[in-house]
Design a binder for these strands. Structure first.
Lengths: 192, 192
DNA sequence: ATAACTCGTTCACTTAAGTTAAGAAATACG
DNA sequence: CGTATTTCTTAACTTAAGTGAACGAGTTAT
């Protein structure tokens, strides 16, 4: 189970056995139930997350309506903007499914970064990679219609369409649930 | 002039005089004319950019139509996704105005990172910060209408509306130039 | 077991963006 | 200087998303 995290790290740097043991012995592994809220709007936080198993969602509440902006699943890591900016969170984080995650602390990372330059190298590489990936996602979103976005999602993350409620998917695609229903109907008609 | 870059770096780390001199003596400062294309679709590149003065635009060409996805202006840095992913570029980079920029190389950065841990710390902090900022931008884009996006841009980057052609702004906002014209008319009517 | 609620879908209607075309205004260029 | 080109706006029409309401299916609570 803890090997999932070590496998992830191995994509960026090579750890000694001692270092692996140190990582594995950290008290960062958490099991969270579906529906659990990990962070609320207005709260301050220093926590970063890595998903071993399950699905985590971030959403804003605008005019008492949820606006889902991201889903994180297996082998994905993220740090909320409020942790980087040291501001109160503008969004909520909650569990879509029973999940197994790691929860690490900014202070802990700071210490690891200064103790192990290797660790900082990994953080830099990971941030650069995520920045590039998110840039491409953003560009694709901007340059395509809701229907294209849905078809794109169907290609790239088909699992999401199965494991996530439609109304959350809709807002993730930037539209209303009714529009997603209609749009799916339209696509089915085209095929037949 | 080179102090602009040093001021930017100073936001993240503290350099010695020797280090400052070394940075200032690097052959990375370039003056580029309006309209110059820095990178084309299909090309490979290892170059990162920092804008001292001017404005740089990234755009895709889809069905022989330009889709502008970003503008970079004074004191902004960016590395194209193709450099990180080591793939051919999917977009173009071009100069909106006569600009003064730095062009650095991935190999050069790798060397600096290993010679000066401080430099890698800066890269990590910068990537983390840009990742958080871009996340917020993406979320705002997703959760708002074209009209809200325009008003938001008017607040956050009023200079862009002056210095960039409308049709490029429109595609940056995810709409057609005609829609931007109409939308601006609608806003003016509301005010009066 | 039934009532309350959530979720997804459908429908009719409204609103805004896309499309096509035309013309005015600004800019570039020979 | 005048012509060509690009840029911006306007208008009429089409298409798709937003809105409000209603319905059935499935779930939760009492």
């Amino acid at each position: 189970m803890k090997t999932i995290l070590l496998d992830f790290i191995a994509k960026y740097i090579t750890l000694t056995e001692d270092e692996k043991n140190e990582i594995a012995s950290l008290d960062i592994f958490r099991s969270v139930k579906k529906g659990t809220t990990l962070l609320k709007e207005g709260q301050k936080s220093k926590e970063s997350y890595f998903i071993l198993k399950g699905c985590i969602r971030t959403y804003y509440v605008v005019d008492s309506e949820e606006k889902t902006t991201a889903f994180y699943t297996e082998m994905e890591a993220f740090t909320p903007p409020c942790v980087i900016n040291k501001t109160a969170s503008e969004y909520y984080i909650s569990c879509v499914e029973d999940s197994l995650i790691t929860v690490s602390n900014a202070d802990m990372e700071l210490e690891l970064n200064s103790r192990f330059p290797k660790f900082e190298t990994m953080c830099r590489m990971l941030s650069e990679e995520l920045l590039a990936k998110q840039r491409v996602d953003f560009d694709e979103f901007k340059t395509s219609s809701p229907e294209q976005r849905y078809l794109n999602l169907l290609q790239k993350r088909p699992d999401l369409i199965q494991r996530v409620p439609q109304h959350q998917l809709a807002s993730y695609l930037g539209i209303k649930p009714q529009s997603l229903s209609r749009l799916r109907g339209r696509i089915l008609e085209k095929i037949s």
